[in-house]
């Protein structure tokens, strides 16, 4: 987040501040090299990002809009869309609460083993999605630790919806926490301390002081978490059991349609997911723009106060 935000900030400030705007030719590349590098970048990105994205929508509409919409309102597709929404609706809030709690503990307090805790929170990002699914099969599957107990009580976790939700929680585990920890650490404790001194309770301080300060970072983490939750394939694939109309999420539905050579239908459902990705990127850019603007206003006011 910070990367992209400062990138644009840097490029705009280079134009805005006179004296820094036009550098001497000594630190600029030869125009031919400059345009060669731009050409290489654009070609690479068009080839690897834009063409695949365009292809999804072209393939989806290849057999016409009737086939496209038919593929989306078909019962199996509708139940896949529903399951995807339910999964995200459970996984994202749980990780949101966790992320805020973890960031509060880590950013606002000093304690031993903090860096180990941060590494452990990031762990799910480095675990292969397939392994993430497998470990839940090992715990909740028939062969697993809790399998016999679950079967005795007629509960199903693996190859059922709870397993899908658990696997999704695992793969999206760090998103909110890793966005909030650096943000809350950078903001420090002064504002909260002031609120407490003025007689606010702990919860009041959190709702009225901390939350407004972290709202954009929180939203940013939630958006990325949601995109991954709705799009996760590998982990969910292992625990789902692929029961059509019951334990298929949208990405799994795409796979089934594709393997049945129903390409137009597969790409139609895929186009919804691609649309979700584009909305995610749009919102992400918006939040980066918003936070950058707030940061640009602050430094201008600060010297006057000082």
């Amino acid at each position: 987040m910070a990367g992209a935000a400062t990138s644009l900030a840097a490029s705009t400030s280079a134009v805005a501040v006179p004296g820094r705007a036009r550098k001497t030719a000594a630190t600029d590349e030869h125009p031919a090299i400059k345009w060669l590098l731009i050409g290489l970048s654009v070609t690479f990105m068009v080839l690897f990002l834009i063409i695949p994205l365009v292809a999804v929508f072209c393939e989806a509409f290849r057999k016409g809009t009737d086939v496209y919409f038919a593929a989306l309102v078909e019962p199996d597709a509708v139940s896949a869309i529903k399951l995807t929404l339910i999964t995200a609706a459970i996984a994202v809030p749980l990780n949101l609460v966790f992320g805020v709690a973890a960031a509060w503990a880590i950013a606002k307090f000093d304690f031993r083993g903090k860096s180990v805790l941060i590494t452990l929170i990031d762990l799910p990002f480095s675990v292969s999605p397939v392994v993430a699914g497998l470990i839940y099969v090992l715990v909740f599957g028939l062969q697993g630790w809790l399998g016999p107990w679950l079967q005795a009580h007629d509960l199903k976790v693996v190859f059922a919806v709870p397993g899908i939700i658990l696997a999704t929680i695992f793969v999206t585990f760090p998103f909110v926490a890793r966005e909030l920890i650096p943000l809350m650490a950078a903001q420090g404790n002064e504002e909260e301390e002031a609120a407490l001194v003025l007689g606010a309770s702990g919860w009041q301080t959190f709702w009225h002081v901390t939350l407004p300060n972290i709202k954009w970072g929180l939203l940013y983490g939630v958006i990325l978490c949601n995109a991954r939750a709705m799009g996760e394939f590998g982990a969910v694939s292992v625990v789902s059991g692929h029961v059509r109309g019951q334990t298929n999420t949208m990405p799994l539905h795409v796979e089934i349609l594709y393997n049945e050579y129903q390409f137009a239908a597969a790409f139609a459902v895929a186009s919804l997911l691609a649309l979700l990705a584009l909305v995610t990127l749009g919102l992400k850019s918006f939040i980066e723009w918003k936070t950058r603007r707030e940061h640009e206003v602050l430094p201008l006011e600060a010297p006057r106060e000082a």
Binding site: V56, A270, L273, A277
Partner: peptide
Amino acid sequence: LVDLPFALPTAV
């Protein structure tokens, strides 16, 4: 668009 591979589901 650089972040597209993060946002686009891998199956897609």
